[in-house]
Amino acid sequence: MGIDLPLIWAVIIIFGIMMYVVMDGFDLGIGILFPFVKDDRDRDVMMNTVAPVWDGNETWLVLGGAGLYGAFPLAYSVVLSALYLPLMLMLTGLIFRGVAFEFRFKAHAEKRHLWDKAFIGGSLVATFFQGVALGAFIEGFKVVDRSYAGGSLDWLTPFALFSGLGLIVAYALLGCTWLIVKTQGPLQEQMHDLGRPLALVLLAVIGVVSLWTPLAYPNIAERWFTLPNLFWFLPVPILVLVTLYGLLRSVARRAHYTPFLLTLVLIFLGYSGLGISIWPNIIPPSISIWDASAPPQSQGFMLVGTLFIIPLILGYTFWSYYVFRGKVTHDDDGYH
């Protein structure tokens, strides 16, 4: 038994998506929070807090897509075609947001509000449909003869729509706590005030998902609630509650960094919870990473380049966050 290439590739792709969710999550969140902030200069500050990094954040999404294509072509083809409409809408949202990001700063003042709207709309659409895609993914796909056998609107379920709304809340909280880290004064004050209701709504979302999935999907219930699994996985919900408590406390005492870090922990825990429910399937409910895997010649060939490049991308990412550390203020010449 040599190296388990499908396992390695699953880990790489899970890591890539995790990086994407965490990093693009807070900059999408900023777009979601835009309507709550009316002041133009505050909006400039909000964008400036993510301007240097947002497109780097999206590289993980492209890498995840290409990696999935090469390593698990079956999953790539089934999942992507099953989620055709939500993914197309998500990509359109991301394009809108990306272009709005750049041209908002370059536009003439009178056209600026248009780019603001494109930025808000793009962020909302991208996040919502990302959540819908996630929810539909958890629900699983009908696969017959190696291709998707469901209808074009099968993803349109109450659970998927709820996931879409849930992800908006999660990204809004990420954006909110990120702004607490990066800003000061009235804007930070406003974000501190917003942190508490957002965290409580997110708690409700997590609660609903945690009840809904095991009730609706017996295999997920079995995964969590049989012994000894229950003992292994019990720390996840407990840690969620502890983290949320800490988050509410830290927002209340006007902490600068703790809320964001705890939100990251929360997102990570939620992500792990979903992973526990699904693993080792890559096309729920029944096709595993080994079933969907490309031949070892393909996975091995890709691995060489990937293992060389990913550390470089990570290094560059950390370095750019380091360069742009600290608070962003109105006085910053910032972004051009």
Binding site: G65, A66, L68, Y69, G70, A71, P73, L74, Y76, S77, V78, V79, L80, S81, L83, Y84, L87, M88, R146, S147, Y148, A294, P295, Q297, S298, F301, M302
Partner: peptide, 19 residues
């Protein structure tokens, strides 16, 4: 994947790594 899924499944082991 979204538009040419059966092609992706058929040839993905070659075209995927190149992409």
């Amino acid at each position: 994947g979204t538009n040419w899924s059966r092609f992706s499944d058929f040839a993905g082991a070659v075209t995927g790594p190149l992409l």
